[in-house]
Amino acid sequence: MAEPAHSDQPLLKTPLHAEHVALGARMVPFAGYDMPVQYPAGILTEHNWTREHAGLFDVSHMGQAFLIADDKSHETVAKALEALIPADVLNLKPNQQRYSQLLADDGGILDDLMVTRVGAPGHEGWLYLVVNASMKEADYAHIQARLPKGVSLNREDELALMALQGPSAAAVLAKLAPETDDLPFMMSADVQIGGISCHVSRSGYTGEDGFEISCKAEDAAKLWNKLLADPEVKPIGLGARDSLRLEAGLCLYGHDIDTTTSPIEAGLIWSIQKRRREEGGFPGAARVQREIKEGPSRVRVGIKPEGRAPAREGTVITTPDGHEVGIVTSGGFGPTVNGPVAMGYVSKDVSAVGTDLHLVVRGKPLPAKVAAMPFAPHRYKR
């Protein structure tokens, strides 16, 4: 989880920084921001609360931007973005959201992102993008440099973003904005929450049902406290966000996916729709299409250590006879699973669920097995 801050620059603060400090959060440098890693209740309690009730996360450090076509045509802006990512943007319905990846020319992943077709009347040629905090400056520069004439990127640095996640999230939000209750998974809506204008999508990063809520930075503290006023909601830090997404089998950029991994190796073929798999037309399409056809030489898998010792990122993976076959990219204790869980890349020939492996922890080979993901079942509202 830890991403070192750039030591030569002062840490940035989200619009909710003062709220975290007032709640007694332990603040740490993360992606150039001063962020809450945990509150006084602790990571374990926060993780379990999100699985059982509703957790509120500050994700305002993420990058929010709009791609806008001068001719107000969805086709124009969709084609511009499809030249950079492998998702089908052209066939997005208004207010529909999709997960995808910015790809390098060799098919490596520059970042992963969320793309939404804006549904508001008069904004037909708009796409709303959410990119990772650690990559946003590089992403914006990459996109900007490759846009055709007539399409522009507008970064929205004056917006805040928070995530309300967990089985109680829908009931909590429905009390404040009733129209969010029947919002389908990966769809969005512009709503008023207690008089605050918000863009809400039914999505998240925990494996639980929930929402991501964007609002103006100046309204963020008011909205945060309005949501926290519900007894079902507690603030959750980066520590539990990481253990929740690991149990959900979700990739973290810079760890489980990066410029050396392709979407196919990472098990993200589901995020590339049929038309794009067949037509290509995105960076690295030759590699992606080849790996779809022939299979990649290595794949991302779930791993369950057999003891209680967690295997951290960078742990070498071997066969039981000591042959090196891969590396752990994320690992830790899974509170819901009540044991250690990990993800990593292994050679295709040892990737089947149930395959015996060894994890070399502090020079000692510890037994583990390839496990099915997610480790904790997804509970999205389908």
Rank of each mutant, 00 (worst) to 15 (best):
A170K: 12
A171D: 13
L173V: 01
A174C: 05
A174T: 09
A174Q: 13
K175S: 14
K175N: 14
L176R: 11
A177D: 07
A177T: 01
A177G: 08
E179H: 03
E179D: 12
E179A: 09
T180G: 07
T180P: 10
T180L: 07
D181P: 00
D181K: 11
P184D: 07
F185P: 04
M187F: 15
M187W: 15
S188T: 14
S188N: 06
D190E: 15
D190R: 15
D190P: 02
V191L: 06
V191W: 02
Q192M: 14
Q192F: 09
I193P: 13
G195A: 11
I196P: 05
I196C: 07
S197V: 03
C198S: 09
C198K: 05
C198F: 01
H199W: 11
H199F: 12
V200S: 12
V200R: 09
S201K: 13
S201L: 14
R202F: 05
S203H: 01
G204N: 11
Y205H: 10
Y205A: 00
Y205K: 01
G207H: 09
D209F: 02
G210I: 11
F211K: 15
E212G: 06
I213K: 07
I213A: 05
S214L: 03
K216F: 01
K216E: 05
E218D: 15
E218M: 10
E218I: 05
E218L: 10
D219M: 09
D219G: 03
D219W: 03
A220F: 02
A221I: 00
A221N: 06
K222C: 02
W224T: 04
W224P: 03
N225L: 02
K226G: 02
L228K: 05
L228T: 00
L228R: 08
L228Y: 06
L228H: 08
A229V: 00
A229W: 01
P231S: 06
V233M: 04
V233L: 01
K234R: 15
K234I: 11
P235T: 11
I236M: 00
G237K: 04
G237C: 04
G237P: 10
L238S: 15
L238F: 14
L238A: 14
G239R: 15
G239Y: 15
